[in-house]
Amino acid sequence: MVGIVVVSHSRKLAEGVKELAEGMSNGQVPIAAAGGMEDGSPGTDAYQVVEAIRSIYRPEGVLVLADLGSAVLSARLAQEMLAAEGIDAVRLSPAPLVEGALAAVVEAAQGSTLEQVDAAVREAKYLAKLGEEQIEIEEEAPSALQMVAVETRFVLRNRLGLHARPAVLFAQTAARYQASIEARNLTRNSPWVNPRSVIDLLRIGASVGDLIAVQASGAEAAQALEALKQLAESGFGEE
C-alpha cells in the first residue's frame, strides 16, 4: 500500500493532519509526519523528511504532501537524497495539505498505485469546499455507463450533507465491488462523478434532502448499489 508523508512548518500541524488522515482510514494506511525544527520553532528540515519517508517506505511508494515554501523545497531535497540511495518511488503532491491528505488515504486504502493516488490527490486542489462551484467541474457528458447500467436513487438523510466522513465511507464501499460506478446529485444537477474518489463526492455538493443517483455496471453492480443504498439509508452510521 502507498504511504503518505505530511510535511509542515509546524510539527503540531503535521502531526494533526496525520491524526486526521489516520482517523479517516482506520489506521490502514502508513502515514508519517515531519515538521518544525529541533528546538520547536517553525521550519522544515530535509533530514526529518528523509527519516519520515524512510520510516514508512515500501516498494509501492510514498506520496509527500507539503504545506508551503521551505516545506516544498525540503521535500524536494529529501526526495533527491533518497533517490541517490535507490529509494526512488517518492512523489511530491501539489495538493493542499488537509484535503490532499484525506484524499490520499482514501485512495491509498483502496490499494491504488502511487500514480493513481497522486492523480486523485491533485483533484483535491479544485475542491469547491463551500459547494458553490460544483456545476462547472466537467462537461455535461451523458454517463458512459448509461446503456448497460443499473441505477439506484436515494435521498441524503445526513443533516450535514455528504461531508468528509460519510464521503469516505461511500468511497470505501464503492471501491469494494467489481463494478464501474458513477454518482450524481440530481437535485443540484451535478455531473456524474467517480464515487471512489472522496474529492469527487465532495464536489457534487450534496446537502440533506438532495436526491442522489448511483449507477453501476459490471459483475457486482447490483451488490454495489445495494450496499451503497443501505449505507445512505442508515445515514452513514451518523444517526
Binding site: 512548518h9 525544527m37 529541533e38 520553532s41 517553525p42 521550519g43 522544515t44 528540515d45 530535509a46 533530514y47 515554501g69 521551505s70 523545497l73 525540503s74 524536494r76 531535497l77
Partner: peptide, 13 residues
C-alpha cells in the same frame, strides 16, 4: 539543511 528552517536551508544547504 538541518537548522535554518526556512527556504534558505535547503537552498544554501
Amino acid at each position: 539543511i538541518g537548522s535554518v528552517g526556512g527556504a534558505a536551508g535547503p537552498l544554501y544547504g
